[in-house]
Amino acid sequence: MASGNAIRGSRIGSSRGGEPERGTPAPRTWVTFWCENRHETTRGFAQDDDVDIPELWDCPRCGLPAGTDRDNPPQAQKVAPFKTHLAYVKERRTDADGEALLDEALEALRARRDG
C-alpha cells in the first residue's frame, strides 16, 4: 500500500504556482458554441490578430456542427449513402445503352470463340 502523504494526480510544475517561471498565459477570448441538440461548448481562443475564431465547431458530446448563434444552430449535413460502382454506371447509362454494350461484348466473344 502507498504511503498516505503522496499527492495524487499532480506533478511538479502542474499547478498555477509554476507560472512565474513560465510566464503568464496569453489573454483569451471565450466563445460559446451550440449544436442542434442544444449542447453548449465553450472554448478559449488567444486574443491575437493572427487567430481566426471558427464559425463552426464540432460538438464534443454528439459530433454535430455547432455555431455561435444559440437560437439558430447549424443544421447537420445530409450524408449520402454509399454507392457501388454499378449504381454510378446506372446513373450514366440507360437500360438501352446497357443492352447495346452487352450485345456488342457478346458478339466479340462469339467471334473470338468461332474464329
Rank of each mutant, 00 (worst) to 15 (best):
A87C: 03
E40T: 12
E91P: 00
R43F: 08
K90Y: 13
G23C: 06
T68L: 10
R110T: 10
V89M: 03
D52V: 08
G67H: 05
I53H: 13
N72C: 02
F82A: 07
T68A: 09
T29I: 14
P65H: 07
E99S: 02
V31F: 03
T29R: 14
R113T: 13
G17E: 14
E21T: 09
Y88N: 09
T42M: 13
P25T: 11
E104I: 00
P65V: 04
P20V: 05
R16K: 13
E36T: 09
D50F: 12
N5M: 09
R112N: 14
Q77S: 08
T32G: 04
I53K: 13
S15P: 01
S10L: 02
A6G: 11
S3Y: 10
W57A: 03
A2H: 06
D58E: 14
G17M: 07
L56V: 06
L101F: 01
V89L: 11
I7Q: 08
P54W: 07
A108P: 01
E36K: 13
C35P: 01
G4K: 13
L64D: 00
F33V: 04
T42H: 04
G13D: 12
G9A: 14
L86H: 08
C62V: 01
R70L: 12
G4C: 06
G115M: 12
W34G: 01
E107I: 00
G44L: 02
G98R: 10
D97A: 02
N37S: 15
A6I: 10
P25F: 05
D95K: 05
E19Q: 10
A26C: 10
K90P: 06
R8C: 07
D69E: 03
R92S: 12
R110A: 06
R70H: 11
D49I: 06
W30G: 04
T41C: 00
A111L: 10
E91R: 05
S14P: 03
P81L: 01
R70W: 09
R110N: 06
R16A: 11
I12T: 10
E36N: 12
V89C: 05
P27S: 12
P81Y: 05
D97P: 00
F33Q: 12
T94V: 00
D103G: 03
N72W: 04
D103V: 01
N72K: 15
R38G: 14
A87L: 08
I12W: 09
R112T: 13
P74D: 05
A6K: 08
